[in-house]
Amino acid sequence: MSKKMKMGVLGLLLVTPSFLVLLVIVVLPIVLSFKESLKNKSGGYDLSNYEYLFTDKLMRSNIIFTLEVTVISCVLVLIISYALAAFMRFSQGMAVRWIKRLYMIPLFIPSVIATYGLIQLLGNHGWANRLLLAAHMGQLPRIIFDIKGIIIASLWFNIPFTTMLLGSALTAIPNSIVESAKDVGAGRLQIFFRFILPMTYKTLLVAVTFVFMGVIGSFTAPFLLGPNAPQMLGVSMEQVFSVFHEKEQAAALAFFTFLLCSGLGYFYIRSMIAEESVKNALLG
């Protein structure tokens, strides 16, 4: 056996375990779910479960609600994380030191604890409202058991990691790039939009993908502090499966959620491949 062939076989052997794991815990459940989702009440196969998803009023509002929460969370997480990361990268002083020390803390608090913490803080009878009442300053609007509560929880869970990702991308931009832009006469906005943003765009895309997937598939926070209706898809899926025992509808819901994530994954991979091919064409 030639050396090249030996290396090929070794490569295949190395990749096989991860491929098998992927096959068993990702590909197979998706295929089975899809098959399940096509089963109708009379035991045949059709698209009735999918039809139900888009015709039932509650299901439609669940889908819209989930997308609403996901998009708003993504936008807010990115804006806040980018601002924090940029502040830590380009500023100095006490505030920066404290942000650096504190911003990762949410990552180390289990999601159930953090969610109950938010309920304690922002609930109708939470600390914040009690303090406001004591100070005769009125009352907070309804946050818990509302879309606002889920979004706040999403911010809590996603900002630290996103800030860390963007922070490392911003750190990779040398000061001298900014200085040379200033040197030719660029103002702050031009430096941001023409240099910093294009040079961190790829990481931004990675961050969007992570946040989108994380929020759209979230369960704990929406389950504990979301409204009864409409619901996030994860909560709805659980209810359809465990309470209504509609296994096929739950499978359709799961497959639809998977398709939503795949859509974003597709754009992510496509833009990465496009960038690679531009690079290869330039270097080739």
Binding site: P174, S176, I177, E179, S180, A181, K182, D183, V184, G185, A186, G187, R194, F195, P198, M199
Partner: peptide, 29 residues
Amino acid sequence: PPEKRPTSMVFQSYNLWPHMTVYDNLAFG
């Protein structure tokens, strides 16, 4: 500030902007 001074600097590490072509690097200022 640097952008308001009648000076221009050539840096040690070239500092060309990697995401722009030579033309765009030159045209920006």
